[in-house]
Design a protein around this nucleic acid. Sequence first.
DNA 1: ATGTAC
Length: 479
Amino acid sequence: MNGLKKIGTNFYIEEIKGKKPIKYIANEKILEQIEEGVYRQARNVILTPGVDDVVITPDAHHGYFCPIGCVAASKTIISPGAVGVDIGCGMRLILTNLNVHDLRTNGEINRAQVRALMDGILHDIPLGEKVRSFDTKTQSELFDIFRGRRSSDDPEIREHRPFRISKDIPVMEHLSGDVIKRAMKSVGSLGGGNHFIEIQVVEEIHTDIAEKWGLRKDQIVAMVHSGSRNLGYQIADYWVTTTRKKFDRLGITYLDRDGMYMGVDTPEGQHYIAEMRSALNFAVENRAVMAKYVMQNIEKVFPGVKMSLLYDVCHNNAMLEEHFGERFWVHRKGATRALPPRHPLLKGSRWFNTGHPVILPGSMGTASYIMVGVDSEGNRLSYSSINHGAGRVMSRKRATKIITQEQFERALGNVLMNARNYRSVVDECSLAYKDIDEIIDSVVVAGLAQVVAKLKPIGVIKDDTSHRAPGWRRRKKKR
DNA sequence: ATGTAC
C-alpha cells in the first residue's frame, strides 16, 4: 500500500531515490487513515535540498508545505514551512493538590463550581481573534521577551530555556507597527482553532514516574494549548514570501511554493533562526501569562489550593540537536520532542533520570496524555520525537457540514464547554479528529514512548467567537 | 494556525 515497506512494529518506510527513506509511525488502523496529501508532502520535504531525514508521526495530516505531524532533520538548512506558521505552539500543564472529590457534591461533579472557574478564566483570557484589553506589554517589555531577557518562568519547567538573542541581530524590524502593537496586546491570549484551556482530572496512572512528577490519580490539573498568535504567522509569512521572491529572481526551482529554505550559515538563515527563537520565547511567555491567570482563578474558587507547573513543551519549532553523533536542525511541526531517560540533552536538568514530560492534547471532550520517551532504536530513529495530539481526520468545512448537534453533544458527553452554540465549535468536535487512543497505541507499541498518565477533561474553553467556521459564516451571511 | 487570500 502506497509503496510502504514495514521495517518494524508500527514502523514503515517509503524508499526515495538518492535520499534516506521516509519513516512512518502508525498502527494498522491509523495507517489506513493517512491521507494521500501526507505522502505527497512528505516526499516534497525529503526532496528539499539539504533535508537529510523525514519522520511522519501517526497524527499526520496535510498542512502548509510540510505535513502537520512531521520531523525534518537537516545539517545545513532551516525551513520556515517545516516549523509551521504557529511558531512555538505548545502545551503547558498546571498541577493542583485538589482531588476530584473536592469538586463533587452528592457524588456528582459540581457543575456550578466548574462553571464559575471557567467564567473567571474567560474574564481574564481573551479568545479567538481578541487580544488583551488590559495588562498590555510595553514595546520595550515585548522586545525583552523576544530577546529572552524577560520571562516569568522557572527555566526547569520549560523544554527550552529562553533563547538569548544578542542586540547585534535585528529581530522583527521588517514587521509593521500595527503587528508589533498587536503582539504587545497578545501576551496571555488563547487564539483559535485547536487551542484550548481545559480543567482535567487524572484518570489513569501508568508508571511510578507519575509520582516523581507530582501526578496522582483523581488529581485536578489544568492544561493550556496555545502558540505565538499573529506574530508567528507574520514571521513565517515574511520569510516564505521573501525567500520565494529571491528564488524566483535567481531562477531556483522548488517543489512547493511554500517549501522555502535557507542555508543555516547564511545571513537570511541566521536572521530567520533569531526571529523563530524570539517567537518561541514569545509563545512560551504567552502560555506562562495564561497559566498565571488560570492559577489565580483556581485560587479564587478553591482558596488555599497549592499549585505548581509540570512542564511547557512546544510542538512547532526547530532545535539544533545532536543525533547519531552529528548536529542537526531538527524541525518538529506537529511533533513533540520526547527525550528518554539519561539523554545527553537532559544532562544537568531535573528530568535527567526520568526523561522530560511530553504533553499531548486530545481533541474536544477526549483524553489528553502525559508521556515520556523510551530509550530505544525507534526513539533514536525519530530524533526522539512523537506526535502532538490526535490529528484531524476531516476538514473543518466537512465537519461543519456533516456533524449534527446531536452527534456533537454525544461526542462531548458531560464535559462542560464555554460555547453556547455548538456551531461555533463544531469544527473542533472529536469526530473530526483521529482516535487519540489509537495514536498513543501507535507510538507506544512502536517503542518510542510510554504513557505516564491519562487525563480526562471536565471543562473545556475554546474559541467560540470564530467567524471562520464555514457553517457559522454562511448562516450569518444568509446568501 | 492567522484581523484568512494576489
